[in-house]
């Protein structure tokens, strides 16, 4: 039984566009399924509008799926189940926006325990222990978020997420706001904490060089759907879906001389997704079938791919 599983999760947002215009449905997520085991890291990659943040909100139970279920230990996760809720915590992208500027580090870290009804002394010692664990000094406990650098603030955010000893951390672009030299520190911290507390991560990122470093499994999304899903090596060494290949080719890298032509066009609007394969408008391999029929995820050498032409293309 998997620690965390999503089964056919869909999310539709109903757009109210004023009184005179028809209401529209925005399919932010369309039948997304995956499983996550203990102490593993699942990375979700994709460009803006692909639904990765919607997925994060649903997994953290901040939002309800329109269809499908999320299970933790095989039990359907309901937002009223406090135990399930506590086992999933979130770390947000922007450490400047996600910490309350009027609260000291101590009160930020104490707050989750306060809600759990733990005594003041225990709260204090737990908060101090966690500060030490993420690399903050005890004498910094009374300071406010603005007195810290971006990397230190992200440490506070990580400490806050760990206060209730969750088993799953949903990290939404946790290092993309940080400088290179500080980013490495935070990535190492996340790796250490994973070992120490037996954490599982859902790591949402647009930065493939970071994903390649942290992920065990990778989920590539485009316009609310999974286009390719597999182990890190499958995705990075032998990508099958044209979109995964386009993403890899577009990532600047010291190993990647960048000779290939860029993928043309932009992701279509999720309000009016194209028929058939959502990527066909930008795919150089698209044929008639891609324009008409939506490809389903199929299992091919150790990963799942949603592409009509993957057999021909992988030759």
């Amino acid at each position: 039984m998997s620690l965390l599983a999503a089964i056919d999760v869909s999310k539709v947002y109903r757009l109210n566009r004023g009184i005179f215009r028809r209401r529209l449905d925005l399919h932010a997520l369309d039948r997304v399924s995956f499983t996550l085991e203990t102490q593993r890291t699942l990375a979700v990659v994709g460009e803006s509008g692909c639904g990765k943040s919607t997925l994060a909100r649903i997994l953290a139970m901040l939002d309800q799926p329109s269809n499908g279920v999320v299970t933790i230990d095989g039990k359907s996760a309901s937002p009223t189940d406090l135990k399930a809720r506590r086992s999933v915590q979130m770390v947000f992208q922007d450490p400047y926006g996600s910490l309350n500027p009027r609260k000291s580090v101590m009160s930020i870290l104490e707050e989750p325990l306060l809600i759990a009804g733990i005594s003041r002394d225990e709260r204090r010692s737990a908060a101090l222990a966690m500060m030490a664990r993420v690399g903050l000094r005890h004498d910094q406990a009374a300071r406010y978020p603005h007195m810290f650098s971006g990397g230190q603030r992200q440490r506070i955010a990580i400490a806050r997420a760990l206060m209730l000893h969750p088993r799953i951390i949903i990290a939404d672009e946790p290092v993309s706001a940080l400088d290179v030299s500080v980013r490495a520190q935070v990535l190492n911290l996340l790796a250490d904490l994973q070992m120490e507390f037996g954490l599982s991560y859902v790591f949402i990122s647009h930065d493939l060089s970071v994903v390649r470093y942290v992920a065990d499994e990778v989920l590539v999304m485009y316009l609310g759907r999974i286009v390719e899903q597999g182990t890190r090596d499958a995705i990075f060494l032998t990508p099958r879906h044209p979109y995964t290949r386009a993403l890899l080719a577009a990532t600047p890298g010291i190993r990647n001389p960048g000779a290939e032509a860029p993928t043309p066009g932009e992701p279509p609007s999720p309000i009016h997704p194209p028929p058939g394969c959502a990527f066909h408008t930008r795919c150089q391999h698209a044929t008639i079938i891609c324009r008409e029929a939506m490809p389903l995820l199929r299992r091919v050498d150790g990963r799942e791919v949603a592409c009509h032409r993957m057999e021909e293309l992988s030759r």
Binding site: G151, S181, A184, L187, N188, S209, Y213, V214
Partner: peptide, 24 residues
């Protein structure tokens, strides 16, 4: 040198990244 070593794409996977202690 430290900046280049801190790049995840330069690190072998499953090894710790080289870090630069402290902040700018």
């Amino acid at each position: 040198a430290a900046l280049l070593d801190a790049l995840p794409e330069r690190a072998a996977a499953d090894r710790r990244l080289a870090t630069i202690p402290g902040v700018v």
